[in-house]
Design a protein around this nucleic acid. Structure first.
Length: 514
DNA sequence: AAAAAAG
């Protein structure tokens, strides 16, 4: 094919980039033939040992753009005890785990030691992996520094350093840590640096720590993904009103809705809404940063595997997490920062698939909605009339409008309970009942188990229904009483972890910069 | 008005 400039890149395949045969074969086994723009741009330079400054959103195939060349370069040489050869820094634990999955997937023809150093889990296993000598070290900053202070880790053997999601690290106050870490690593290293945006602090950082970097910037689409249908949904301001709005919305969307992420602004809201949804028989999971790590992973994996249909989440899930095939995003709260809106709804409509997003808005959200519309440069349509048609209820316990009524008997009681009032003890089996006292510490794990059991039960039920038999089998509860005892390893990675393809997004090119 | 990350 002859090359006009545009199609030249399109025509590239992975085998044109200089990757090793082992890597290429893993890539093709994973089903990929064509690199994304960031991959095509970054990989050849990374292979030559040059520093790379990649400006790209998550979902652009960014992860593979450093994983693949690193694998190729790691084929020469061996790791020594406590001296990892490469280091990848990630802002969140889930992202770090996701990068590990990528190394496992694309490194399946390599014999590499991979160590994942994240908080919330015991040190023992991590120590062992370091001791054995890690070719690839993937870490969140806190735990990494912790290990180093304990003397278990030497960073002066690091040949390649990756800093991922730098702007998010900035938001999270990690920059001082990042600077400390950079200073521990020899000057001669190669640095691959990724950020979605380039605020001044980040530019300064790159000037300090990158040497003559090759700048690779993925093109930005002018507007929001056309594959995402966006709607605003009016609601009263009271929590129970918002929950009801959400439930009705979910039910109305039922036929199209494969699975959904429901974003809340705060962690308490995540747990409240989660418990409420469970009470209302939705197979929901929850994800936020105060949950214990086991529950976080479990929820995320169950959601990915389709064992949970709904995931109530804080913004920990807004960026970067690769959850393919989410059909719906609900914003239970309007995000306070407009960029977060872009990231949140970007969880759907991936790889050109159709996605829907609904944002529940109350009177007090107007200015945030305005900011979002300004950012994305377009008005978002109201789903079913705008806020002028909402009748605001008075007082905390204002009775609900008697209409728009619950379809099931007993709903009123549940709603009363939702509002925090005591109601007559449920007629439901206590097994599915969520402890009212549940706060965020230990009980979350319990709740997680309940959610998991329910998810399994539901999976079985829907399987049966599909087969035409509507009998409900009770699955024996096999939730193990796993306490998170330090020093205890869990081998039971029972469900094979799903692969994380980096979807090429129709959308993610949006630049969420003001 | 938040979330995230070390414990």
């Amino acid at each position: 094919m002859s090359a006009d400039t545009q199609t030249a890149q399109e025509a590239l395949t992975f085998s044109d980039l200089g990757l090793s045969p082992k890597v290429l074969s893993a890539v093709s086994d994973a089903g990929y033939t064509k690199p994304t723009p960031i991959q095509a741009g970054a990989i050849p330079h990374a292979l030559l040992g040059k520093d790379v400054l990649g400006i790209a959103q998550t979902g652009t195939g960014k992860t593979a753009s450093f994983v693949l060349p690193m694998l190729t370069r790691l084929e020469k040489g061996r790791a020594r005890a406590r001296m990892p050869r490469t280091l990848i820094l990630e802002p969140t634990r889930e992202l770090a785990a996701q990068v590990e999955e990528n190394f496992i997937k694309y490194g399946k023809n390599h014999k590499l030691n991979i160590a994942l150093l994240i908080g919330g889990v015991s040190f023992d296993e991590q120590d062992k992996k370091l001791e054995r000598g890690a070719d690839v070290l993937i870490a969140t900053p806190g735990r990494l520094l912790d290990h180093r202070e304990r003397g278990k880790l030497l960073l002066n053997g690091v040949e390649i350093l990756v800093i991922d999601e730098a702007d998010r690290m900035l938001d999270m106050g990690f920059i001082p840590d990042i600077e400390r870490i950079c200073e521990m690593i020899p000057f001669t290293r190669q640095t691959l640096f990724f950020s979605a945006t380039m605020p001044p602090e980040i530019t300064k950082l790159t000037e300090k720590f990158l040497h003559a970097p090759v700048r690779v910037e993925v093109s930005k689409a002018a507007s929001t993904a056309t594959s995402i249908t966006q709607r605003l949904v009016k609601s009263g301001t009271k929590p129970w009103e918002k929950r009801e709005t959400l439930r009705n919305l979910i039910k109305a969307e039922d036929t199209d809705l494969k699975n959904a992420i429901i974003f809340c602004n705060r962690k308490v809201e995540v747990s409240e809404l989660f418990r409420s949804l469970l009470k209302h028989d939705f197979d929901a999971g929850a994800l936020h940063g105060d949950m214990d790590q086991r529950a976080r992973m479990q929820m995320l994996n169950n959601f990915r595997d389709g064992k949970l249909r709904y995931l109530v989440a804080s913004d920990v899930a807004a960026r970067g997490l690769d959850i393919p095939d989410v059909s719906h995003v609900f914003n239970y709260d309007v995000p306070i920062h407009a960029e977060d809106y872009v990231h949140r709804i970007g969880r759907t409509g991936r790889a050109g698939r159709a996605g829907k997003s609904f944002t529940i808005a109350t009177r007090s959200d107007t200015k945030y909605v305005d900011a979002i519309e300004r950012l994305i440069g377009t008005k978002i349509e109201w789903h079913d009339g705008d806020l002028s048609t909402v009748t605001e209820s008075e007082g905390e316990d204002a009775p609900r409008r008697g209409r728009g009524a619950p379809r099931r008997a007993g709903r009123k009681d549940e709603d009363r309970k939702d509002r925090g009032e005591r109601s007559r003890k449920d007629r439901h089996a206590k097994r599915d009942d969520v402890p009212e006292t549940t706060r965020d510490e230990q009980p979350v794990a319990e709740v997680a188990d309940i959610a998991e059991r329910r998810a399994r039960k539901d999976a079985i039920r829907s399987e049966n229904e599909r087969k035409g038999s509507s009998n409900r089998h009770e699955q024996r509860g096999d939730a193990r009483p796993q306490r998170d005892r330090p020093g205890r390893h869990r081998q039971e990675e029972d469900d094979a972890t799903v692969g994380f393809g980096d979807d090429v997004p129709a959308f993610m090119r949006i630049v969420a910069k003001v």
